[in-house]
Amino acid sequence: MTILVCDDDKEIVEAVEIYLMQEGYDVIKAYDGEEALAVLEKEQVDLVVIDVMMPKLDGIRATLQIRKESSIPIIILSAKTEDADKILGLNVGADDYVTKPFNPLELVARVKSQLRRATVLSNGGNVPGEEIYEAKGLVMNNDLKKVTVDGEEVKLTPIEYNILLLLMKNQGKVYSISQIYENIWNEEAIGADNTVAVHIRHIREKIEINPKEPRYLKVVWGVGYKIEA
């Protein structure tokens, strides 16, 4: 698998290269947006990691250019942490957004996740007739009691599984702590405690790359929890 890494800071490109090579990927380096586009013309690339603020052609414009011709996964790297910047990046067609300074292991995890997702999705591959719930890369097969994130299996405890199943069956709906308690434990929630919240955090730690910025299991503060539809 070949990954194009593009950033105007040479040292960052090299560090990312080392991490990705350790995971067995081939890396092509570029130092501005135009160079990145030139590489994509010539080479077969499976994923792009691209910085936003670069000379000549910035990452946002480069992403727009790439999206005109190709649907390969793009991960944007940026020092900008504002929500508006993230939304812009994702709106122009990026698949993920990682803010600097990033944890290298997190970046590697996101690269793996995007690549798995690209291959799993292209393989298609679910047996028809099975009870399956999907939200982006998160898939629950209720016949096999199996949960996968971007094709990789995740082990959940029975309670965690039931909570996630409840939220997956009703994507977009917000469940309060007591509603979840009543649904899972089948008893009235009198004097609820942190139990449900702790289970939710454990689920997040298992299915999310960065549990503090969840992609699937979102916290609606002061209201409850939901799976983003």
């Binding site: 800071d9 040292e11 960052i12 560090a15 990312v16 080392i18 991490y19 603020m53 020092a79 900008k80 600097k100 300074p101 990033f102 944890n103 290298p104 292991l105």
Partner: peptide, 17 residues
């Protein structure tokens, strides 16, 4: 802080390496 973050990224990465 944007300008600080770029060198900091390298520091974090190379210390990890």
């Amino acid at each position: 802080s944007h300008d600080l973050k770029t060198p900091l990224t390298s520091i974090v990465n190379y210390v990890d390496l």
